[in-house]
């Protein structure tokens, strides 16, 4: 565990808590993509199957259980409890265009052709693009609430901090995972446009609104 990794995890944790607080306090899931959350649930479920096969640390286990628990609770809030506020018309990204190629790629490009390893690889690839339905929704509606922007900033920062973690680990431990690094770079690049808007608008007290 190094400082980049810890900050990355804390950023990820903060993102999830910000999203839950937004939904709970406003009793609304407006502006949130249910499809992105379903993709994240798929990512966590696929990646954390190793909860049953290997124990790493109390920290590791607690975080995994928290991530899985909260993402399913988020889906419950979007599709059941606060369903009336869910903007399904604008959440129209076709997720099969992500799942199918990502599944195929996980079969073709992996570290080892074994079930758990392929499922892990699938989760890494899927995570890198899972935010697309959310970004697509914002581009369709042309705006994002400030709290939603904070959520996205924390979520995007998490993988950027992991990139720093991997650079550190490469030099400190000789650890290098090409699949995670390439997917992490792709994931971070997808947020760049948003990061720019966040820094130029949200940090100056304005909300994100795109020209029509």
């Amino acid at each position: 565990m190094n400082i980049f990794r810890l900050c990355g995890d804390m950023s990820h944790l903060a993102a999830i808590i910000i999203l839950l607080l937004k939904m709970w306090k406003t009793r609304s899931v407006a502006g949130i993509s249910g499809k992105s959350q379903i993709l994240f649930a798929t990512v966590f479920t696929a990646r954390y199957l190793d909860l049953f096969t290997s124990f790493i640390s109390i920290y590791n286990t607690c975080m995994k259980v928290f991530f899985i628990g909260t993402v399913y609770f988020t889906i419950y809030l979007i599709y059941m409890k606060f369903k009336a506020t869910y903007d399904s018309n604008h959440d129209s990204f076709r997720v099969e265009f992500l799942i199918v190629p990502v599944g195929g790629l996980a079969f073709l490009v992996n570290h080892e052709f074994a079930p758990l390893e392929i499922i892990w690889t699938f989760s890494i690839y899927l995570e890198s693009v899972a935010i697309l339905p959310q970004l697509f929704m914002i581009s369709k509606t042309g705006e994002a609430e400030t709290i939603t922007s904070h959520y996205l900033f924390a979520l995007g920062s998490y993988r950027a901090l992991y990139l720093c973690n991997w650079i550190y680990r490469y030099y400190a431990e000789g650890f290098f995972d090409l699949i995670a690094v390439v997917a992490g770079v792709v994931q971070t690049i997808l947020y760049c446009d948003f990061f720019y808007l966040y820094i130029t608008k949200v940090m100056k007290g304005k909300k994100i609104s795109l020209p029509a």
């Binding site: 990820h12 790493i56 640390s57 090409l178």
Partner: peptide, 10 residues
């Protein structure tokens, strides 16, 4: 450099 099959990251 090494790749570990035990994933210690989240």
């Amino acid at each position: 450099t090494q790749h570990t099959s035990i994933k210690d990251e989240l």
